[in-house]
């Protein structure tokens, strides 16, 4: 690299243009610094960053399997403790690795209280295998295994509440963040690293390829998710919500209509009933987390 400052997450990897996961990876390492060991799960980020013999990681990095990154991190954390080493351990997984197949290992590692940070970059489906639904896929999103059709409006279930599940394990720090606000994401990762014990950060990471939007719109889409209340950015300390990003809410439609995965709600004809159901999800989020900024008349 000439002229530019070298990032701990190198450019030249194979992510799609506009990939939020790649942006998340760089931001995570910017926040964490050199003394960090990263454990990746199988998925887009792992594949696009390490096609042998190349690697984008300028910190020690290991990938073992799809569903065991928290168990591998447990072992690393124990080994560092025994060796008297001070490096931080970060496990990174997609939503499939975290919400679904790796849940057993994740739960075990959090219950045991290892000192590590788990970061889920949430692109709301199994992207690496071709956009199949996961436990993090939102209601009505059309994926290759939850396709919209004559008798389907897409994914039939709402998103699993993984942050709450991990907070219920007694995690001292749980946060959600988004690539829409990188300084906030960085701050949360720092805080997670500085907190002793198992901490969780879930990063909303729009995927242009899987969601169906132009690659230059990644940040705009990520913002809309926050502004519509479909994604809430918050922090939980010792089980209590301590900080929430407030917004002047926009209707969910503004977010939905920008993405191919929700196109069936608008074409060939508008499905008001389903759009109303998604609006209700945003309304519930808004109430639960008190995100609404009430404008004074």
């Amino acid at each position: 690299m000439t002229g530019e400052q070298c990032s701990l997450f190198e450019s030249g990897h194979r992510a799609c243009g506009g990939c939020a996961a790649a942006l998340a990876a760089r931001t995570i390492l910017d926040a964490a610094g050199r003394d960090t060991i990263v454990v990746s799960a199988t998925g887009c980020m792992e594949v696009f960053s390490t096609p042998y013999p190349e690697t984008a990681w300028n910190v020690p990095w290991i990938h073992s399997l799809f569903e065991n990154n928290s168990a591998v991190a447990s072992g690393i954390s124990a080994a560092l403790k025994k060796q008297g080493r001070k490096e931080k351990v970060i496990a990174i997984g997609g939503d499939g690795a975290s919400f679904d197949i790796g849940m057993l290992c994740l739960s075990g590692a959090f219950e045991r209280g290892h000192d590590f940070v788990y970061i889920c970059y949430d692109n709301e489906a199994y992207m690496n295998t071709g956009i199949q639904r996961s436990g993090a896929t939102p209601y009505d999103a059309s994926t290759t295994t939850s396709p919209a059709g004559k008798c389907s409006t897409g994914n039939p279930r709402p998103k699993k509440d993984l942050p709450a599940i991990l907070a219920a394990h007694g995690a001292p720090y749980v946060a959600t963040a988004t690539v829409a606000y990188l300084p906030d994401l960085k701050k949360k990762i720092r805080k997670a690293l500085d907190t002793e014990g198992p901490c969780y950060v879930q990063v909303h990471a729009p995927c242009c390829t899987g969601w169906g939007f132009e690659s230059e719109k990644t940040i705009a889409i990520a913002r809309l998710a926050v502004e519509t209340g479909l994604f809430v950015s918050y922090e939980m300390e010792n089980g209590q919500v301590t900080r929430v990003k407030k917004v002047v809410r926009k209707p969910v439609e503004e977010y939905l209509k920008e993405q191919r995965r929700f196109r069936h709600l608008f074409r060939p004809q508008r499905n008001d009933a389903e759009i109303a159901k998604i609006q209700a999800i945003a309304d519930r989020n808004a109430e639960k987390f008190a995100i609404d900024i009430v404008l004074k008349k």
């Binding site: 454990v39 065991n68 072992g75 124990a78 057993l104």
Partner: peptide, 20 residues
């Protein structure tokens, strides 16, 4: 490490071994 499964037992060993 009192893991929650054999799957994690060997995964944890793998991690610790990779850490030296």
């Amino acid at each position: 490490i009192t893991v929650e499964s054999e799957f994690s037992a060997l995964s944890a060993c793998l991690g610790a071994s990779a850490a030296g």
